[in-house]
Design a protein around this nucleic acid. Structure first.
Length: 575
DNA sequence: GCCGTCACG
DNA sequence: ACGTACGTGACGGCA
């Protein structure tokens, strides 16, 4: 293969392997035109002159004037960084394009995208792999055409998908938001988060003891030993042996979920102990015991994956491990967040948007009352409580505020009397009265919801402030349940999705500003309305206002955006 | 591999 | 009569 003229070409990079920080990087496939593809083995067994090939490739890959085409380019970027190549330039990521065209799809793999848009059925990876353990063991003469097919397919998909993006008005969202975000997410994953492994070991022992005590208590109360983690066995004990009344069913039997056990807790001591056990078991298995196993041996840090093409609304997701659902509530939430520490001479800085979805609702609905409340920086739940119960703000009790908070959330979710009644533990009729009261006071919100559903019916999709689309194929369904679900999506998606647009824009703005000022502070986590940074202590006075301003001014809405920011030696103390 | 459950926003 | 709050990911149990 001739690589001599690569620098003149727009080309595709595609790779296969198991992860950017693993040692199984296997190769790069290049495609310059249909039917002419090349595979450059990087860590392939028996591959020769890899360094030579990489040193030739490095030049165009690092040239910001040469665009790159591929499917899931964040992966390729991270892999190439492992080989000392820092990819730069415009990215045509066909996975992201397919996602923006239809974020409802369960997966946007190259295989499925190839079938959908080109009716091309790619040779399955499993077939090429056969019984071999790693792609690196696949003979080169088989590996090459496999990898080259990936490259050629991405190359062809690029043409059709980016034309569609343009015709659907999604080009701006792609090039100004999602594409720059690829580099930022790659940086965040590569940076990773330091954790105090020794402390996790202590917490594990503490939980072990606690669980042992609760377990014995449960067996004592029950008069038998059984697997507490088995909902089936637990239901047997609760509802047959003890004779408590089941209040909810699942597809497979009686439900033993938290709301059922809460209800039963005043009738018998077992349900409370089960809830207790479940809480500690969850913390131990999902966090305290799991996190140390995911610490990278080389970096000593945890490197999550931020997935950009999963959610139907435009949010990111995080996996292996999910660092977007680390416990925060209660003593144990604090204990677990304390193990997320800052590196040497650094602090954790955490900045989160206050009431961001309700502010977005205020902006999008143009409801005067909601807008005024935020302009005056009112406590929004207290304000709503005063409206719902017809009292002055000063007379709002904690219980009234709790109800109002649930109603405010309910509105964002596409409120229904049934859903609200379940959340508040009241009758659907009583919940309906709250909803009526709410809409009587916030008429702009009611009108906005009716308009949004009407537009969704006409268009077949809803949009966010930055033009992200979610198709709603069931919005005109004759099945009430199905249609009403689509109506709730129609209400919730523009709000949740705009919040996702906002924080993505803030991430780009803040990172650009950190970069421009030559600061060493690094963004390490995003949790939907919160950004977490690792910052040298000497930079804190500089970056705190920089981050706050960047986030608060990422979008100009008809209400102010408010960011709470703090810092400390660990994630718990940064709040 | 699906289900129930529960951690987060 | 039915089945309903929005968006995720990970765990253990069980077929």
């Amino acid at each position: 293969m001739s690589l001599g003229r690569l620098s003149e070409l727009s080309f595709d990079i595609e790779s296969t392997g198991s992860g950017p920080l693993s040692d199984t990087i296997v190769g790069i496939a290049l495609c310059r035109e249909k039917g002419k593809s090349f595979y450059v083995p990087v860590r392939h067994n028996n591959a020769r002159n890899v360094d030579g090939a990489l040193s030739i490739l490095k030049i165009p890959l690092e040239d910001p004037a040469i665009p790159k085409i591929g499917h899931n380019l964040k992966f390729d970027i991270l892999m190439l960084r492992g080989e000392g190549i820092s990819v730069k330039g415009k990215l045509y990521d066909t996975m992201l394009a397919a996602y923006l065209l239809n974020p409802n799809k369960a997966n946007h793999s190259l295989e499925d995208t190839g079938i959908e848009y080109l009716n091309h059925r790619k040779r399955p990876f499993s077939e090429t792999l056969g019984k071999r353990g790693s792609f690196a063991d696949v003979p080169l003469d088989e590996a090459t055409p496999y990898a080259a097919e990936d490259a050629a397919l991405a190359m062809e998909l690029k043409e059709i998908l980016f034309e569609k993006l343009d015709s659907e008005g999604l080009g701006g969202l792609y090039f100004s938001l999602e594409m720059p975000l690829i580099y930022i997410l790659a940086d965040m994953e590569q940076a990773g988060v330091p954790v105090d492994i020794e402390r996790l070991g202590e917490l594990s022992k503490e939980l072990e003891r606690e669980l042992g005590i609760i377990e014995s208590g449960i067996y004592g109360i029950s008069g038998e030993t059984f697997n507490i983690n088995s909902p089936k066995q637990l239901a047997q004990v609760l509802f047959e042996k003890i004779g408590l009344k089941p209040t909810k069913k699942t597809k497979t039997g009686y439900s033993t979920s938290v709301d059922v056990l809460e209800e039963l807790a005043n009738q018998h001591e077992l349900p409370r102990q089960i809830l207790n056990y479940r809480t500690f078991h969850k913390l131990k298995t999902t966090y305290v015991d799991a996190l140390p196993r995911l610490v990278n041996k080389r970096t000593g840090r945890i490197h999550t994956s931020f997935n950009q093409t999963i959610t139907a609304t435009g949010r990111l997701s995080s996996s292996e491990p999910n660092l977007q659902n680390i416990p925060v509530r209660g003593d144990w939430g604090r204990k677990i967040r304390e193990v997320f520490i800052a590196g040497k001479d650094c602090a954790i800085v955490s900045a989160d948007y206050s009431q961001v979805e309700l502010r977005i609702l205020a902006h999008m609905s143009r409801d005067r009352g909601l807008i005024d409340a935020f302009i005056h920086d009112a406590d929004i739940h207290t304000n709503t409580a005063a409206q719902l119960f017809g009292v002055a703000n000063e007379s709002v009790t904690p219980d009234m505020r709790r109800v109002a908070k649930t109603v405010n959330f309910g509105v964002i979710y596409g409120i229904s009397p049934f859903g609200l009644s379940e959340a508040l533990g009241i009758s659907p009729k009583e919940a309906g009265v709250f909803i009526e009261q709410y809409f009587a006071k916030y008429g702009g919100v009611r009108d906005y919801m009716e308009e949004t559903i009407g537009k969704a019916r006409a268009d077949g999709y809803v949009t966010t402030l930055l033009g992200r689309k979610r198709p709603l194929p069931d919005i005109n369904s004759s099945n009430n349940n199905i249609r009403q679900q689509a109506e709730r999506f129609a209400i919730n998606t523009p709000i949740q999705g705009t919040s996702a647009d906002l924080i993505k824009k803030a991430m780009i703005a803040v990172c650009a500003n950190l970069d421009r000022n030559g600061l060493k502070t690094r963004m390490i986590l995003q949790i939907h309305d919160e950004l977490v940074f690792e910052s040298p202590k000497t930079e804190i006075d500089t970056v705190v206002p920089l981050i706050k301003d960047g986030m608060e001014n990422a979008l100009q809405l008809s209400v102010p955006l408010k960011v709470d920011i703090g810092w400390g030696e660990n994630w718990a103390k940064a709040h």
